[in-house]
Simulated assay, not measured.
Amino acid sequence: MKIIVISDTHLDSEEIPSYLSELFEKYEMIIHAGDFDTFPFYKALESTGKLKAVHGNSDEPAVRDILPEKLIFEVEGVKIGVIHQASLSIVDNTATRYMALEMGVDILVFGHIHRPVIEKSDVLLICPGSPTKPRMSDPCAVELEIENGSVKTNVIPITGQSCEYIDFSRSLGENE
Rank of each mutant, 00 (worst) to 15 (best):
M1G: 11
K2A: 00
K2E: 09
I4S: 01
I4D: 01
I4Y: 00
I6L: 15
H10D: 09
L11C: 06
L11T: 11
E14L: 05
I16S: 07
P17I: 06
Y19E: 14
L20A: 10
L23G: 01
L23H: 02
F24G: 02
E25Y: 09
E25N: 11
Y27W: 03
M29C: 08
A33S: 14
D35T: 05
D37S: 09
F39P: 02
F39H: 14
P40M: 11
P40C: 07
F41G: 02
Y42H: 04
Y42R: 03
K43T: 08
E46T: 01
E46G: 00
S47H: 02
G49T: 06
G49Q: 01
A53I: 03
V54D: 00
G56E: 04
S58T: 13
S58V: 14
I66A: 09
E69S: 12
L71I: 08
L71W: 08
I72M: 09
F73V: 09
E76Q: 15
G77M: 11
G77Q: 12
K79Q: 09
K79P: 07
I80S: 05
G81T: 07
I83H: 01
I83E: 02
H84D: 06
Q85G: 09
A86I: 04
L88W: 14
L88S: 12
S89N: 11
V91T: 13
T94N: 05
T96W: 01
E102W: 04
E102Q: 11
I107S: 07
V109R: 05
F110G: 01
F110A: 01
H112V: 00
P116M: 02
P116H: 05
E119S: 15
E119T: 10
S121E: 15
L124N: 07
L125Q: 03
L125W: 03
L125V: 06
C127Y: 00
C127A: 13
P128T: 08
G129Q: 03
G129I: 06
K133W: 11
K133H: 12
P134Y: 07
R135E: 07
S137M: 10
D138P: 02
A141I: 03
E143D: 02
E145I: 09
E145K: 14
N148S: 15
G149Y: 11
G149Q: 13
N154A: 12
N154Q: 13
N154P: 00
V155P: 04
I156R: 12
I156A: 04
S162G: 11
S162R: 13
Y165I: 13
Y165P: 00
I166H: 04
D167C: 04
S169N: 07
L172W: 05
E174T: 14
E176Q: 10
E176T: 08
E176C: 04
E176G: 14
